[in-house]
Computed example of a mutant assay.
Amino acid sequence: MAVFTKVLTNTDVQRRFSFPDGCLPALPPFRGCHAIVLQVKDEAGILWNFACTIRSGMTPTPVIVSGWIQFVRSKELQIGDVVFFYREDDTVTGAHYKIEVKKNSTLTSVNRKVL
């Protein structure tokens, strides 16, 4: 089941990934800490370890601050590409997280014309 879908912004591809509002309950519990390691498998079965922190404020927002840029570079992600984030619950092993990316075909065709 998809937890969220997000169109990537400049900040997402250049610095860090901010989860959309309301996603915190779907993540592993932080148990009083401000950071966790979030293990996520991509569509190729590669396991990524993302350092996820919570930004303080009126609405705590989870943010991936480490490991994300390597993911962006390996997938050659750009502004406008879409990320699908899934959580699958297993009664024996607990929650498993998956990430899938879809390239923005409009952007890709525009880039091809420019080249």
Rank of each mutant, 00 (worst) to 15 (best):
Y86V: 08
E88H: 02
A35E: 15
E43Q: 15
L77W: 02
H34I: 04
K75Y: 11
V72H: 03
K75E: 11
V83M: 15
I79A: 03
F19K: 01
P20R: 05
E100V: 03
I54C: 06
F84P: 04
A26Q: 11
T108V: 14
T53H: 05
V101S: 12
N49L: 08
I69L: 15
M58A: 13
R87A: 09
E43G: 09
H96R: 12
V7R: 14
C23I: 00
V83F: 10
D89H: 12
S74N: 14
A35C: 12
D12F: 01
R16F: 05
D90E: 14
N111A: 12
K103P: 01
P60V: 11
V7G: 10
A26Y: 06
F71E: 03
E100K: 15
G57M: 07
L27T: 04
Q14N: 02
Q39G: 00
V82T: 14
P25Y: 06
Q39S: 09
C33E: 11
Q14V: 09
F85M: 09
T5V: 13
R112Q: 15
E100T: 10
V40T: 06
C52M: 13
T106W: 09
W48T: 04
W48H: 09
T59G: 02
V82R: 11
W68T: 00
V72R: 05
Y86W: 08
I54D: 03
G32C: 07
S74C: 08
P25M: 10
Q39Y: 08
L24N: 05
F85A: 04
F30L: 05
K98Y: 15
A26G: 06
V65L: 12
N111M: 14
K113V: 00
G94C: 03
I36C: 02
K98V: 06
G32P: 07
F71M: 11
Q70W: 03
L47W: 00
V37D: 06
R15E: 11
I36F: 00
S56M: 08
T53Q: 14
T5Y: 03
A26K: 07
N49F: 06
T93I: 12
P29E: 05
K103S: 04
P60L: 13
N49T: 03
T59V: 13
A44Y: 01
S74D: 10
N111S: 09
E88M: 11
K98Q: 15
G80F: 02
L27I: 07
S56T: 12
A44W: 02
I54R: 09
V110C: 11
N104H: 10
K113L: 15
T93A: 10
V65D: 01
G67F: 04
Q70Y: 05
R112A: 15
V13T: 14
V101Y: 10
E88C: 13
K103E: 05
R73Q: 15
R15A: 12
I46C: 14
T91N: 13
V65Y: 02
V83I: 15
